[in-house]
Write a protein that binds this DNA or RNA. Structure first.
Length: 437
RNA sequence: GGAGAGAUGGCUGAGUGGUCGAAAGCGCUCCCCUGCUAAGGGAGUAAGGGUGAUUAAGCCCUUCGAGGGUUCGAAUCCCUCUCUCUCCGCCA
């Protein structure tokens, strides 16, 4: 949620900022509703004051045994006041609810360093690492490679569930697990992230806190009808909610958490997109990085977070580039986002494998996540950040595609070999063996 | 799934329908005393919001798990819900 005080003070300034990301705020409507809110609230509070004073008088009169007449008059006046109060209270509540709902639909203000633009064509490349491999033959896509290895089974998944699921077998199932473990170990050891294990089902409040609700319910799988729980679309939701209703001391920050979770997305509205292969699935594994920082520390923490995610790609020797998203392409809750894009030889282009965002105090307000200098000082909102470090499924397919040889074999990056029992390559067509180890 | 207990300020924990935003203690802040430490004495110490000149004083409203209700008036009485704990059953 954006700062409501700022919105009240400078509605047109806020509206102008939101236009940068293609969001049209109904300024005229808001200004009139806000004026109404102010009037109603002042009237309501005045009525309550009168009621409180009146009730106190009644108490005093009863204590001093006043005449029944005087008491009766008082009570009659209060009854009349009460009718007014109920009406005023209802009107104010209704308007408050309307405004509250409105606030929740406002996206975050884009950071001043975010480039102008409405879609991904305006995103800026920040840097690039490594170059696309020169194969000297026509590279296969991961679906074909997966079949040759006999480790990727889309038809079984389709039969038991439906489209956009996959079954991994043998060495590829183990490869996914190895990647996951490697990422967790790496972030914990190299950068001091605390590993956390979290629920994969969350309630409505958690999703509202991080910003997926109320606007994006159609992207989620709901578990119903007995409980109002949702499958998490990203580990960001449960991990960031660790900070909910919490006041951190300065000395506790920054918090760095890393978690491995499955992610579930309905992918409503992406019909026809990336139908083939493991690029876009209803279920995928992700290692998620989350940081809670002091407000002044978040820009630097954001840059570091991106480097943490990048380091995985470097360790795995995968070519990638870093993109700074333009205002219009930046997600609802984010003030600034860098995407990491890995090279996919079969598509001859870069595809998103990580998204690293600084939400500033947007999620913190919704989550009531605060910090304070010490026990006696006043609390203020923390800043929250997160990034994929990385999307495991996409990392797996990028590895297959970028490290294939002409016969469909896959060489394992040295960093990963210890996690796979020391093997150097996956031999295509060979019998699927579980490596020792 | 069955039975029971509970939810009050940073923490522990009182609370009779009417100056209760709430006793007391702990913690914390400031002051006094004191070679140091320890101990002692005094004062202060919830949050959110409105208004005020957006950031002062002041004034006011709200908040005792959440939401309803009774009442002129609710932490206190009634109803519903959520959560926590204990015991039994079941289970990885």
């Amino acid at each position: 949620m954006i700062d409501i005080k700022l919105l009240r003070q400078d509605p047109s300034g806020v509206a102008a900022q939101l236009v940068r990301r293609g969001f049209r705020m109904d300024l005229e409507w808001y200004v009139s509703q806000e004026a109404e809110r102010r009037t109603l609230q002042m009237a309501l509070e005045d009525l309550r004051k009168q009621r409180n004073e009146g009730s106190r008088k009644v108490g005093e009169l009863k204590a001093t045994k006043a005449t029944p007449d005087e008491l009766g008059m008082r009570l009659e006046k209060l009854a009349k006041l009460d009718r007014e109060l109920v009406a005023a209270d209802q009107a104010f509540r209704k308007l408050s609810a309307t405004l509250e709902a409105f606030y929740l639909t406002l996206p975050n203000l884009p950071d001043s360093t975010v480039p102008e633009g409405m879609d991904e064509s305006a995103n800026q490349e920040v840097r690039r690492w490594n170059t696309a491999p020169d194969f000297g033959f026509e590279p296969r896509d991961h679906v074909e490679l997966g079949e040759m290895i006999q480790g990727m089974d889309f038809s079984s998944a389709r039969e038991m569930t439906g489209a956009r699921f996959v079954v991994l077998k043998g060495i590829l199932a183990r490869l996914q697990r190895a990647l996951t473990t490697f990422m967790l170990d790496w972030h914990a050891r190299e950068y001091g992230y605390e590993e956390v294990y979290v629920p994969h089902l969350v309630n409505r409040q958690s999703l509202t806190g991080t910003g997926q609700l109320p606007k994006f319910e159609s992207d989620l799988f709901r578990v119903g009808p007995d409980v109002d729980w949702f499958l998490i679309p990203t580990g960001e939701v449960p991990v960031t909610n660790l900070a909910r209703d919490h006041t951190f001391l300065r000395s506790e920050l920054p918090k760095r958490w890393v978690a491995h979770t499955p992610c579930y997305r309905s992918e409503a509205g992406s019909y026809g997109k990336d139908l083939k292969g493991m690029i876009r699935q209803h279920q995928f594994e992700k290692v998620e990085l989350v940081q809670i920082t002091l407000p002044e520390a978040s820009p630097q923490a954001h840059e570091q977070l991106v480097e943490h995610a990048e380091s995985i790609l470097i360790q795995l020797e995968l070519p990638y580039r870093v993109m700074l998203l333009c205002a219009g392409d930046t997600g609802f809750a984010s003030a600034k986002t860098y995407d990491l894009e890995v090279w996919l030889p079969s598509q001859k282009r870069y595809r998103e494998i990580s998204s690293c965002s600084n939400f500033r105090d947007f999620q913190a307000r919704r989550l009531n996540a605060r910090w304070k200098e010490d026990a006696k000082s006043k609390p203020d909102w923390v800043h929250t950040l997160n990034g994929s470090g990385l999307a495991v499924g996409r990392t797996l397919l990028a590895l297959l595609e970028n490290r294939q040889d002409e016969g469909g074999g896959i060489s394992i990056p040295s960093r990963l070999q210890p996690y796979l029992g020391g093997i150097h390559e996956i031999r295509s067509g060979a019998k699927v063996e579980h490596p020792p180890g």
